[in-house]
């Protein structure tokens, strides 16, 4: 293969592994995100991520480019609110990604670079608990909350209004509708006592993608992709917890003008540590990496994450104001 042809192939790889996908797929929410709180609570999550590897971190297909390096620095900021619907706990949230992603592929001594920055597609999320304790409509309900075995129904919808440049494959916006349906599961193991809480959590979900009819002038389609996140979480003190995280993605075969890429079947491991700074503020730090990535053509992906969630409820805030008077 001629070097130019190889470079074109590399670029095509970038096309295929480029921003075919919403960043939220990889911007995996930390463990314990689907624990329930008092109805009418508010939360502002901000998630910072630094991702690198030999595949586009924004690409659900994770097609390996042996000589490629991808780097992304992004933040996801959002707003979430809880309420009750027919006695079930509900959360609605909107998350806006933003940041910078760049790629560099060296083929036959020649390097191709691309980058994108700005705002991505906002995503709206609706989550309702279907199995588990009833909504925490009062503070006594919140005091008595124990997830035991809880199952939610989750729906995400990415709205294609993020920054998109049809002249290059690497974008933050996707230029197509996409979304996810899932069933977050929280399984309480043992007592629900701060300092000793243990949970096993799963998020099985299916991502569904619309068609991007102007993907560098071509048509991009992606098959549905199955996602299974797993977390084993454990308190180590009343305010400190950690989790062992796993992620598995399969499916999500992308096609450009009918030319199929490779389906995903990737597995990653990681950990997260969380700390409750005060009644309003929680932080987490996490790292996740692919495994079995020593072979040259093996998937390699490393992700560092730092999240801050600020939450509040008007009664709690009012009580604190009175307490401080």
């Amino acid at each position: 293969m001629k070097p130019v042809t190889r470079l074109r192939c590399a670029v095509a790889t970038i096309l295929l592994t480029g921003v075919l996908f919403p960043p939220k797929t990889l911007a995996q929410l930390p463990a314990r995100f689907y624990w329930k709180s008092l109805s009418d609570s508010n939360g502002v999550p901000v998630i910072f991520q630094s991702i690198s590897g030999n595949t586009n971190p924004f690409d659900p297909a994770h097609i390996v480019t042996p000589d490629a390096n991808f780097d992304a620095t992004l933040a996801l900021a959002g707003y979430a609110r809880t309420f009750s619907l027919h006695k079930r706990a509900v959360m609605v949230a909107i998350i806006e990604p933003m940041g910078h992603v760049s790629s560099e592929v060296t083929v036959a001594g020649r390097t191709a670079k691309q980058s994108a920055s700005g705002f991505g597609d906002p995503m709206v999320e609706f989550d309702i608990n279907v199995i588990g304790p009833r909504a925490q409509k009062t503070i006594p309900d919140a005091l008595r909350y124990e997830p035991k075995f809880s199952v939610d129904l989750l729906g995400d919808l990415g709205i294609p209004i993020g920054k998109y440049d049809s002249s290059q494959p690497l974008n933050l916006g996707q230029n197509r509708w996409y979304g996810r349906v899932g069933a977050p599961i929280v399984w309480q193991l043992g007592p629900w006592v701060p300092g000793r809480r243990t949970t096993l959590e799963f998020l099985p979900a299916v991502w569904l993608f619309g068609t991007n009819s102007n993907f560098v002038g071509q048509t991009l389609t992606t098959d549905p992709m199955f996602q299974l996140d797993g977390h084993l979480t454990r308190d180590f003190a009343e305010s400190f917890w950690a989790s062992f995280d796993t992620a598995w993605y399969t499916g999500g075969q992308a096609s450009i003008n009918g030319v199929h890429g490779k389906s995903l079947n990737n597995f990653g491991l990681g950990f997260t540590a969380g700390y409750k700074i005060n009644d309003n503020l929680n932080v987490t730090v996490g790292y996740k990496s692919t495994i079995n990535d020593s072979a040259p053509d093996a998937l390699r992906l490393n992700q560092f994450m730092f999240s801050v969630v600020y939450g509040w409820h008007k009664i709690i805030e009012g009580s604190k104001r009175l307490k401080h008077d």
Binding site: L143, E146, P191, W192, V193, P194, G195, R196, E238
Partner: peptide
């Protein structure tokens, strides 16, 4: 000091 209400009884 295992006195969180959820621990009462333990």
């Amino acid at each position: 000091s295992n006195n969180h209400p959820n621990a009462w009884g333990e």
